[in-house]
Simulated assay, not measured.
Amino acid sequence: MIDASVFTSNRSSEPSSRERSLPTTLDAIRAPVADELDAFRPYFREAMESDHFLLDKITQYVLRQKGKRIRPLLVLLSAKVCGEVNEMSYRAAALVELLHTATLVHDDVVDDADTRRGMFSINALWKNKIAVLMGDFLLSRGLLLSLDHNDYTVLHALSDAVRRMSEGELLQIEKARFLNIDEKTYFRIISDKTASLISACTTSGALSVTNDEEIIERMRTYGEKLGLAFQIRDDLFDFGAVDAGKPVGIDMQEKKMTLPLIHALEQSSKSERKAVMKHVRTDDKSAEDMQAIATFAKEHGGIAYARERMEALATEAYELAEAFPPSEARDALLGLTQFTIQRKR
């Protein structure tokens, strides 16, 4: 576990993160945009409205699924760091949440998942065909929300993220068949699957309030670095490397090669690799199989290496955010960066 002292910057004469407190809980991180988040919710609800009975029924069910709303939070914080939150900022936050919700609905179909956020998934209640169509409806509503208001730059950023997410998922599926992923490919996958949407959130927030290309690029890069660190934290959960409060070994069961295992394989002998890959290739892994993989990753430095890469990426993200003028919103982004790699789930 790292603390705030890891994140230091010499770019300004203001007190460093070691000399001032930053928000460390999601409630505290939300505080600078609490009013804006309240204003955002009607945009999201209205964007999902339909006079079709079944669509409206499913929409109301989706709205009852309480997520953390991290992505709209990122949009609004980024907008406030770069300028003044406005109507375009709210539409960008709604578009992000619509696209994200649509991808979750489609993911549940692909994964044959029965639950989502502690509730039955759409496909579990209304079957796959309706779930796919519901996801398509949400995507179309998001697109129309931007097109109707000529928010082309935001729409481009989010559309590119959806493209990258699809490509990353397909590449991961392809590599899972042959188990031949290296570190470079791993980072390409998580950049596309995870970091692309987080980066699109921070980019969209900036785009909604400024035309300054340097500011927009800095915020885009911040989101990319944050997203990479976020995903490595998730990968560490799978190895039981942190108390995640969630089942471990999900990625192992699906034969997803993540950074702890990739690095450990690179550091091991041929005979050691052969032995552990027998466990990796097993279709229905036992608890013993998963423990053997986790132990191998730890003993060959994979866990420690993944932590180092995660913390290095978070440091880069922190320094990018710290370069913005001091404000409560800027400090909330700094706090969110720390929270991302310290979270328990």
Rank of each mutant, 00 (worst) to 15 (best):
L336V: 12
L158K: 02
Q342V: 00
E311A: 11
K175I: 10
V276M: 11
L95W: 01
I341P: 00
A275C: 07
T115G: 10
L147A: 14
E19N: 11
S21H: 02
L228M: 13
A94H: 04
R71L: 05
R163S: 08
S159I: 05
N86C: 12
A323L: 07
D283F: 10
D108E: 11
E167F: 11
V154C: 13
A92Q: 01
G249S: 08
A200G: 06
G249W: 03
S191Y: 08
V109W: 01
D238Q: 06
N128T: 09
K298Y: 07
H106L: 11
D284W: 07
T221D: 09
F324P: 01
R177L: 15
R30D: 00
V96H: 04
K274Y: 10
I341Q: 02
D114L: 09
H100C: 10
E299K: 15
I29G: 04
A244V: 03
A244C: 14
I198D: 06
Q60N: 15
R188S: 13
A323F: 05
D212E: 15
F178R: 13
E272H: 10
K285P: 10
K255E: 10
V105E: 04
E254M: 12
R69M: 10
G245N: 12
T340C: 14
G168S: 11
T8I: 03
G205S: 10
E299M: 13
A47W: 04
H149N: 15
L144Y: 13
L104H: 01
E84F: 03
S159E: 07
S140R: 11
E254C: 09
L170S: 13
S286W: 14
V276L: 11
G142Q: 04
F324K: 03
S89A: 12
D148P: 00
E174K: 14
D192K: 15
E266I: 01
R307I: 05
A332L: 09
P42A: 07
R71Q: 05
D136K: 08
I250M: 05
E36K: 06
S159D: 06
R11A: 15
A229I: 04
N211Q: 13
I341A: 01
M277P: 13
L73D: 00
Y43E: 02
Q65F: 05
R233Y: 07
M252R: 04
R41E: 15
D114Y: 01
A314H: 04
H279T: 15
L145I: 12
D3Y: 04
G245I: 00
N211K: 14
E174C: 09
K66T: 11
S50V: 06
V85K: 02
F239S: 02
I70E: 01
A332K: 06
G301N: 09
Q172M: 14
V154F: 08
P326G: 03
D56S: 12
D51H: 13
R91L: 03
M290A: 04
E308T: 13
T59N: 08
D151V: 12
Q172S: 12
S16G: 14
T103V: 08
G118F: 10
K285E: 12
V242W: 03
T337F: 01
E14A: 12
A200W: 01
T295W: 00
L197K: 05
E316S: 13
G302L: 02
S21F: 03
I29W: 00
D38M: 06
L26N: 01
